[in-house]
Amino acid sequence: MKKIVYGLFFGDSITYGEYDGVFGGWVDILKRYALQRFHEGNGDELILFNLGIGGETTEGLLKRMPVELNARNSADGNLVFISYGANDLAIKEGVQVVNPEQFKDNIIKAVQNAKEFSNDIYLVSILPIAQNIDGVVVGSGKLRSNEEVIAYNEILKSIAADYSLGYIDFHSALVDDKEVLLSADGVHPNEKGYGMMAEIAIPIIEKYL
C-alpha cells in the first residue's frame, strides 16, 4: 500500500517564489519533481504545499500555523519546512521588525507546533543579500545587512542542533555567487538562484518518495 505524505513549506516571498516568472520558485520546482516521480510509479506519493506569504515574519507564522497544520495533516506523515528571517531581521524606521530574541522564541514555538504533526522538520537558512543593498534603506523603507543575516542564521542553526532538526543551508551555497543568483532587488533569487535551491532540496525530498 502506497503512502501519501504531505510536505508543508511555511515561509515568506522566497518560499512563495516571487521574482521567478519561469519556474515559480524552488518549492514549485520540488512540487513538479515529486509529481513526476509519482507518475513514473516510483515509491510513495509526496504532496507538497507552498504556504509562502510575501512579507510574512515569524509573528504571522505563529498566528496561522496551527490552522494550516490541522488543515493539511496526512495520516501517513508530514514534512514541515520553516523558512523565515529575511523580513524579521529588516530594520524599518530604525526598529528591527522582529529582534533576535523574539525571533528565536518564535522559531522554537513554531517547531513545537510542527512537532505535534511531524518528526521530520527542516529549518531553512536565510539567503545572503546583494552588496548594493547591504546596509542600505531600499524603496520599501527596509534596511537589511549581511551581518544580520549571518547572526539570524546562527540562531536557526543552534535551534536545529538543540531540537535535532534538519537544516538546509542555502546561504552557504549561494553566498559566493550571490551577485549572479539574486534578482535586481538584491533580496529574492532569480531563476538560476531558485534552480540551485531546488537542486539542494531534491535529495531531501527523495528520502520520502
Rank of each mutant, 00 (worst) to 15 (best):
H171W: 06
Q112M: 13
G139M: 06
A114G: 01
A110F: 08
Y33S: 10
V95D: 07
A114H: 05
Y84E: 00
I159C: 11
I107K: 12
R37T: 12
G166R: 00
G135L: 11
E116C: 09
I155P: 03
L127R: 10
A90N: 06
L62A: 08
Q96F: 08
G52N: 01
Q131T: 15
V111Q: 06
N99P: 01
A161F: 10
T58V: 10
S164C: 00
I129C: 01
E45P: 01
F103I: 10
L156M: 05
G85V: 07
D177H: 10
V95L: 05
F117H: 04
I108K: 15
M65P: 06
N132Q: 04
V111L: 07
I126E: 07
V136F: 10
L127K: 05
I91R: 11
I82Y: 01
R37F: 02
Y152N: 00
R37V: 13
V137E: 13
I133C: 04
N99K: 13
L79K: 02
K63E: 14
I121L: 09
A90Q: 09
G94I: 13
L62N: 14
V124H: 00
N78D: 01
V138Q: 11
N146R: 11
I47K: 02
V111D: 00
N42C: 11
G94L: 08
G85A: 08
V138T: 15
K63R: 15
A86Q: 00
Y33K: 12
A86N: 00
L46E: 09
V175P: 10
A75K: 13
G135E: 04
S158N: 15
V137W: 02
A90L: 05
A160W: 07
L174T: 04
L48K: 09
L61W: 03
G77N: 01
T57Q: 04
K92V: 14
L165H: 07
N42E: 14
L174P: 07
H39Y: 14
E56F: 12
Y84R: 04
S118Q: 06
I47H: 11
D105Y: 09
I82C: 07
S158L: 07
V136G: 10
A75C: 01
A114R: 09
I82M: 06
F117W: 05
V138W: 05
A114I: 12
S172R: 00
N50Q: 00
F81T: 03
T57S: 10
S74W: 05
A173E: 01
T58C: 00
K104L: 04
L35R: 12
E40H: 12
I53D: 02
D162L: 00
I91G: 08
N78Y: 01
S125R: 04
L69G: 11
N50W: 06
P100Y: 05
A160K: 02
I82D: 03
E101T: 14
D76L: 12
G139D: 14
A71S: 15
D105E: 14
A151G: 09
N106H: 14
I133V: 14
D120V: 13
L46P: 07
G135V: 13
N153W: 05
D177N: 15
D88K: 08
L79I: 15
E56W: 13
L156D: 07
I159P: 08
G94K: 00
S145M: 11
I129G: 06
V111A: 09
D162W: 03
S145V: 13
V136R: 03
K142W: 02
D177E: 15
I129R: 08
G139T: 14
T57Y: 01
E40F: 10
S172K: 03
G52F: 08
S83T: 07
K157P: 04
Q96C: 14
V149W: 06
